[in-house]
Computed example of a mutant assay.
Amino acid sequence: MEQIYDAAEALFSQHGLYGVTLKDVAKQVGVHHTLLNYYFTDKKALFDAVFARRAVVTSERRMQALDAYEAAAEMPTVEGALRAFLDTDLDTYIEGGEGWKNYAKLGAQVANTPAWGADLMDAHFDPVVLRLIGLLKKALPDCAEQDIFWGYHFVTGALMLTLARTGRIDKLSDGLCHSDDFAAVKERMASFMAAGFLAICKK
């Protein structure tokens, strides 16, 4: 099953849900497609299983990091909360090899597919996102609640674009920056986003 998931993950990350068939996955693994039909009713069921496999890992890691940060901090800060949330996730992709990077691209696709992607994101990530929101409210007690939610919206947009690894920043910067350089993103993103929260909350 792990071979099936890995092959499907790589294919879906490149071609999306509609660009892959169960036969494509079976061919990649080297099995007859009837084996996949036995385990999965259709390719959406396989897609959902592939997505869920790593979603639980990254969600739990971030939840643990947020809990540990709150327990250690006298007073949570915006950047501290964002680092627990963002850096932990980026570390997973930095250290996890190509499989995790494929999953990152898959997550970016799901986050930008309103028809059914929002339901997947809600099911797997709402608890950890709301945990972050709770910490941000503690760090910004005088900030309007809608500004905190908008701030998170901007954070997740930047994160999803990063995870998509489109290569656009590579071209725009003439090779100075690389879309797969998650370490460079980790060094900058939380600080950048924290400044944004502070700016919109000032008013």
Rank of each mutant, 00 (worst) to 15 (best):
M75D: 14
K105S: 04
N112T: 12
Y38Q: 13
Y93S: 01
R54L: 14
L36H: 02
G99D: 11
L17Y: 12
A84I: 02
Q109S: 12
V78K: 07
V78W: 06
E98N: 02
Y69H: 07
L106S: 02
A108C: 05
A81F: 06
F47E: 07
D91P: 10
Y69D: 08
F47W: 12
A49R: 11
V50W: 01
L17Q: 12
A111I: 08
H33P: 01
L35R: 14
T34P: 01
A73I: 09
F85D: 07
N102V: 00
A71V: 10
V20K: 07
S59P: 05
A71L: 14
L90I: 13
R53E: 11
T21M: 08
H32Q: 15
D42E: 11
A26S: 10
D87Y: 01
F47G: 04
L86R: 01
Y103E: 00
Y38N: 06
E70Q: 15
D91W: 08
A65T: 06
E70S: 12
M75I: 12
T58W: 04
L17G: 09
G96E: 04
A68W: 03
V56F: 00
R83A: 04
E60W: 01
G30N: 06
R62L: 08
V56A: 14
T41F: 09
G19S: 11
F85T: 03
E95G: 09
A84R: 04
V31C: 15
R54V: 09
L46T: 07
G99F: 02
L35W: 08
L106P: 10
N102F: 01
V25Y: 05
Q28F: 00
D48H: 10
Q64G: 03
A71F: 06
A26V: 04
Y69C: 11
D89P: 00
T58P: 00
T21F: 05
K43E: 03
A71W: 13
Y38R: 11
